[in-house]
Simulated scan of single mutants.
Amino acid sequence: VPAAGLPADMPGLTAAMVELFAAFGLERPHVAGNSLGGAIALELAALGAVTSATALSPAGFCTARELRWALTVLSLHRNAARLPEPVLRRLFAAPALRMLAMGMILARPNRMALDDALADARALRQARAFRAVARAGRGYAYAGAPTVPVTVAWGTRDRILPYRQAALARTRLPAARHLDLPGCGHVPMHDDPELVASVILGTTGVGPG
């Protein structure tokens, strides 16, 4: 699950991303990201380093208190992910227990395949940079001015970076396209993958706007 914080050296991070694009032979690609990845997508858009950016519940539009809440919840999930995998498998296999375990991150956790839930828990457990990123991101706020098409889409049932933060995103990014993701939580790719795909394609101009 993407962390809600952001490294303090954003110029260095975005420069590294641009170098990565070049290494893969990508010239100003379309980008999309969720939470931390959403913030990075917006920063790249502000640089004009991409052709378009889709940000799903992006970091950078919350108060200090809201950010502490997000990091606390994600830290608790990371601690829980350290349970032995057989225990996690039994936990995720029971619909009621899966809702209890993942309901803060997903609005519809039972739509997620069991193996995907285990893979997410494993990734969160093994995220060695989690604490460093969380510490570095405590003072982050997005203040860029994108020069390319941007969509900001927010899950209406987001409990990590709550939907009310979308109002601030609308204020700071008046030229962007702002969309609601009805019934989706913080990680909408699992809650409604078809909707998320259509939002991204609409930003790129490939699909319906």
Score class of each variant (00 low, 15 high):
M10S: 06
G12A: 07
L13A: 06
M17L: 13
V18H: 02
E19Q: 13
A22K: 08
A22G: 14
A23V: 04
F24S: 00
L26W: 15
R28F: 09
H30V: 07
A32Y: 11
A32N: 07
G33V: 05
G38T: 06
E43Q: 09
L44F: 06
A45G: 02
A46P: 00
L47N: 05
A49N: 02
T51W: 01
T54G: 08
A59F: 01
G60M: 03
F61W: 04
W69F: 13
A81W: 11
L83N: 07
L83S: 14
P84K: 03
P86N: 11
V87C: 04
M99G: 12
I105P: 00
I105S: 04
L106V: 01
N110C: 13
A113Q: 14
A113Y: 04
L114K: 02
D115E: 15
D116T: 15
A119G: 05
A119F: 04
A119P: 00
D120S: 01
F130P: 02
R131K: 11
R135V: 14
G137C: 08
R138E: 14
Y140Q: 02
P146C: 12
T147S: 15
T151I: 03
T151N: 04
A153F: 13
G155Q: 13
R157P: 06
I160G: 01
R164I: 11
R177P: 01
R177C: 12
L179W: 05
D180Y: 09
P182E: 05
G183C: 03
H186D: 05
D191N: 03
D192K: 00
G202N: 11
P208G: 12
